[in-house]
Amino acid sequence: MLRQIGAIVAKDLAAELHTREIVSAMLVFATMAILIFSFALDLRGASGRAAAPGVLWTTIAFSGTLGLSRSLAREQQNGGLSGLLLAVEERSVIFFGKAAGSFVLMLLVVVVLLPLGSVLLNVNLLRPDIAGVMVLGTVGYAAVGTLLAAIAVNTRAREVMLPILALPVLVPLLIAAVQATAGLLEGMVPVDSWIRMLVVYDLVMIAVGVVTFEYVVEG
């Protein structure tokens, strides 16, 4: 099973290396968004620290939808999903493989976004604890996004459908991620409950994805 998940991730990354269409779209969007926020809002001093978590997670949330939608669309092209369905041991392998591939691509965007955000938002985001929250948030986002992108990809307006479907489901994750990031930036504020909420959200959404993905892809 792990070998098959690895094969799907490696295949997605190899395809991305040839086209660079997902990462470049996400990076351009994320860079532009954070740039616009930094000029539109007064982010000097304490106000910058207060706004940074919201700006950061809003940017990640919207740029993520671009990548997830395209990642599943790639499977739809030439019926690749049928090929996967024929070859996998368990159909949840496709969910794990696609979610892991999306997680890696989103993480690449986060790696660029954190130093950029540190400069533009006047806060130090290059901290291990902030990086940990980013990873937890991205795991949940990739799980939810993969499941809902698999639903949206079968609709005519898939690019529009994914944010409409995903953002309401992502609200608890985004609130927890923003609160945890803000707490860490402020210091002295307990963030354990928000971190726990992120972990629980990730586990629940991974479980929902494993159970339901088979029915989603079979249509």
């Binding site: 190899a14 395809a15 040839h18 790639r74 092209q77 030439n78 019926g79 690749g80 049928s82 090929g83």
Partner: peptide
């Protein structure tokens, strides 16, 4: 299974 669709990935090489 060979279907009407090729089940191939356009963004990979034949060998890949």
């Amino acid at each position: 299974f060979l279907s009407h669709e090729s089940l191939l990935y356009d963004d990979l090489t034949a060998r890949q």
